[in-house]
């Protein structure tokens, strides 16, 4: 069980939305993490490497800084099944770049731009994720 946290989750979501809006305001780009991270490796097509690198460093620094500032560990339960996590990582990495976006690029930025392409992508990844969890927890694990 995890606790239902509507207010904290809404506040965190607002922060994510603000980050996306300000990135568009600053340099006119979509805050899609799979795009930002996927373009960190060569070949480089544009001059935005330093921007993307900065965004990723900030993303990585935030939890560490919050944990240090509050003196409390960030609640996080990650599976320690290494083969499972490697397989999951490969699927997430390949699928998000192949489909031109993930939860942020299609889910947040695309939906808020009313893109039907992003709506289709979001419906599909939500559906396969729901089915995967159902199979793992209630069919295989059940």
């Amino acid at each position: 069980m995890t606790e239902f946290t509507p207010f904290a989750s809404l506040a965190g979501g607002v922060m994510i939305g603000l980050s996306a809006v300000m990135l568009m305001l600053w340099e006119g780009r979509i805050a899609g993490i799979s795009g930002i991270a996927g373009e960190l490796l060569p070949p480089y097509r544009d001059g935005a490497f330093l921007s993307r690198f900065g965004f990723v460093i900030g993303l990585i620094a935030a939890p560490v800084a919050i944990a240090t500032a509050t003196g409390e560990a960030i609640p996080q339960t990650v599976s320690s099944n290494v083969p499972l996590m490697i397989a999951a990582g490969l699927l997430v990495g390949f699928g998000s770049v192949w489909g031109n976006g993930c939860t942020s690029g299609h889910g947040v930025c695309g939906l808020s731009r009313l893109s039907t392409r992003s709506l289709a992508a979001t419906v599909v990844f939500m559906a396969t994720a729901f089915v995967t969890v159902f199979l793992v927890r209630h069919v295989i694990g059940g």
Binding site: I33, Q76, G89, V92, G99, V124, F125
Partner: peptide, 30 residues
């Protein structure tokens, strides 16, 4: 096909590991 196949593959991985790209990167320092 890509905007259906890609998210379908991504969703399976997300359901297996519980990480999508943003949270996965943010978790590095932990």
């Amino acid at each position: 096909a890509r905007v259906i196949a890609g998210p379908a593959i991504f969703g399976i991985g997300w359901g297996l590991g519980g990480f999508c790209p943003g949270p996965a990167l943010s978790a590095l320092g932990l």
